[in-house]
Design a binder for these strands. Structure first.
Lengths: 218, 218
DNA sequence: ATACAAATTTAGATTAATCTAAATTTAATG
DNA sequence: CATTAAATTTAGATTAATCTAAATTTGTAT
């Protein structure tokens, strides 16, 4: 039996090392889940014994196939619940994360498969991140950063990199949402800010924003 | 902060002693949650210290106002999730309990209030049990046991006492659901079985069944 | 009222997850 | 390449929840 805490460590390892394949350091994990490095050491030993991770003392850790599949399943649940919260329960995209952190640990295959069907098998969560299907397959979409977009072309907003409340609320207050059609008007080489046009609005966004907003050409 | 385990003990005390007011024994609790009596003793001490229960050594325990309000809130969440599972996710009424046992512990007021609204403020769960509103008020309905129903009168099925899978599946397989209109045809004094008629079916049910099915006169 | 059985509590251990502080290993720098 | 700084692990404690086994209290029956 896997514990809730083990699931959280596995998830952290997955997110820190591209799909869990890259080796991650103890400190990186300890920062990401706000525990002391010594606690992480203990847990890595356990995850390794249980077959979820490849761990070499002092060298770092990555996930086994088994560990990856646990991680993907949790991510699937997390993102499906996020869709549910936004689409059915009027949550905003900056409110969903915390509650989904808890819902993702509910263990019932029927629950999650029925939820998937109820939501009509969404491919992406409210932040544009892909939702794996029940076999763990992701449907990737081509996306570029706004900072890499070409002047004059029209794009659709398909995701964000930074999912902090601050950034999501910034987007909300400027009426940018997933699906919003955007035209790049001008790029300022001095500070890499970008002027965009959408739905009769014109907006100047900083380089920081431009690097955290994902677009798809339409 | 209240722990998940404390919530489960509080719920058990609530269910065992009519709304938590009646004094409950250590053994009764230990049986109902499948722990040893010694563990229960420890926990009762803790619940008492934290102000959730009135506990006198060797004498039993009941809930304080604070404890009752915790219990009612969990019951509200449990029953709302049950409605969700049955109405939106195609669960049958005998499948919902286990998953709801986990969902009931998710802590988010917005989540539960929005869920309530999404389900259009249901007054009863799939077993006919009342769902308290957000202030903890129950809406009770008049109900009698089928065993007390009068020959010739028409009733509506409004709930069950026994919520075991076995009983619920028995009802399902005989096409009896909440809302089913039932006429009492005959009562057999010898074994207290009852013959009922509904939707072109005639069915003989045992005393045991007749005592576990709640009806309302229509 | 005494003795026994049943119910309950206490004492002491165990497990999972965490912590602090000390020890060890690795990496980096002169 | 020796020393030091940073990262990591070990050792030992702590907390919550549980258990077993022993001790205590309560209630009942003769």
């Amino acid at each position: 039996m896997i514990t809730l805490t083990e699931e959280n460590y596995i998830k952290a390892i997955y997110h820190l090392g591209k799909q869990g394949t890259e080796v991650v350091s103890t400190n990186a994990i300890s920062e990401s889940i706000h525990t002391k490095a010594s606690s992480v050491s203990d847990m890595l030993k356990k995850l390794s014994e249980k077959g979820y991770a490849n761990y070499v003392k002092y060298q770092g850790v990555n996930l086994t196939e088994k560990g990856q599949s646990v991680a993907i399943n949790i991510i699937r649940k997390h993102r499906l619940w996020e869709v549910f919260l936004v689409e059915k329960l009027n949550f905003t995209w900056d409110e969903v994360h915390e509650v989904a952190e808890h819902l993702e640990h509910i263990r019932s295959e029927k629950l999650i498969d029925e939820l998937d069907a109820f939501l009509e098998f969404p491919n992406h969560d409210p932040h544009g991140d892909p939702i794996p299907d029940k076999h763990g397959n992701f449907k990737h979409i081509e996306k570029i950063m706004l900072s890499q977009a070409v002047i004059g072309k029209t794009y659709k907003c398909v995701g964000v990199d930074d999912t902090s409340s601050a950034f999501l609320r910034y987007l909300d207050s400027n009426k940018i949402a997933l699906g919003t059609k955007i035209v790049v008007v001008q790029k300022e080489p001095y500070d890499n800010s970008v002027k965009i046009k959408f739905e009769d609005n014109e907006l100047m966004v900083s380089q920081n924003v431009a690097k955290n907003l994902f677009l798809k050409e339409v």
